[in-house]
């Protein structure tokens, strides 16, 4: 039962990553692209969790935490840069 759910989960996460990529490429404004990058990093965490279940491994925790922190810092600094052209005031 778990392999079927894993297949559906991989497919859904892949489709959602492609949709975020579509918004990243096409997004009419800069903030749409920043939001699409944030969504891509969150989807990458979801994909890493699924790979961790698939490989029965607990080793992907550090990578997921790193992606989460870097994605948050990247989103914050990009949106600060989009407002005032300066990340740190």
């Amino acid at each position: 039962m778990i392999p079927i759910a894993l297949t559906i989960g991989f497919s859904a996460v892949m489709v959602s990553m492609f949709m975020a990529l579509f918004r990243l490429i096409r997004g009419p404004r800069l903030v749409d692209r920043i939001l699409a990058l944030d969504t891509l990093s969150i989807n990458a965490i979801a994909l890493l969790m699924l790979v961790g279940i698939y490989l029965r491994s607990d080793m992907f925790f550090e990578a997921a935490l790193l992606i989460a922190m870097l994605g948050f810092v990247g989103t914050v600094s990009l949106s600060k840069h989009a407002v005032g052209r300066s990340v740190i005031e």
């Binding site: 759910a5 989960g9 489709v15 959602s16 975020a20 404004r29 903030v31 749409d32 939001l35 989807n43």
Partner: peptide, 29 residues
């Protein structure tokens, strides 16, 4: 575990579908 995976996949898909299909930025957020 299968139900949790399916629920997680569904909500991830719904979030990205909203990002792609909604009308303007404040709705996409």
């Amino acid at each position: 575990v299968s139900a949790l995976i399916l629920v997680g996949a569904f909500f991830t898909l719904v979030g990205s579908l909203g990002l792609t299909r909604l009308r303007d930025f404040f709705a996409r957020l």
